[in-house]
């Protein structure tokens, strides 16, 4: 529901990085968005198309890397994908699991000219 403000943050980050590098135009914005980041990718794309006009990213393309939820067992150390939000090790059954990916919400890279 707050994708509009998330996209505004994305544009703010991209524009400020582009300016630091004396770029005139942003061509691509690469995002990493985790399965458990709480944002809806379709809404991100929709809001981006709306907000990018009148910025140096007006012709930019959004590249979204969607990252599945994965965990590491704090008992046996094995890494595995978490399905159906069941945080349980499939090797040793322990439920003390650290999330190692799937919560990402960041601007990864830009392509500018």
């Amino acid at each position: 529901m707050h994708e509009l403000s998330i996209v505004q943050n994305i544009l703010d980050i991209a524009e400020s990085e582009a300016r630091k590098n004396n770029a005139k135009k942003i061509i691509k914005i690469g995002l990493k968005i985790g399965e458990m980041s709480g944002v809806v990718i379709d809404s991100i794309i929709f809001c981006f198309e709306t907000l990018k006009t009148n910025t140096i990213a007006r012709d930019a393309e959004l590249l979204i890397d969607h990252i599945p939820l994965a965990g590491k067992c704090k008992n046996c150390g094995s890494n595995f994908q978490i399905n159906n939000y069941i945080f349980k090790c499939n090797t040793c059954n322990n439920n003390d699991i650290e999330i190692i990916s799937g919560r990402e919400l960041f601007v990864d890279e830009l392509e500018v000219e």
């Binding site: 998330i6 943050n9 980050i13 919400l105 960041f106 890279e109 500018v112």
Partner: peptide, 13 residues
Amino acid sequence: MKIKVVSNILKAN
């Protein structure tokens, strides 16, 4: 030109 950014979108918050 490519720029590596790696900036958390919610870092301001």
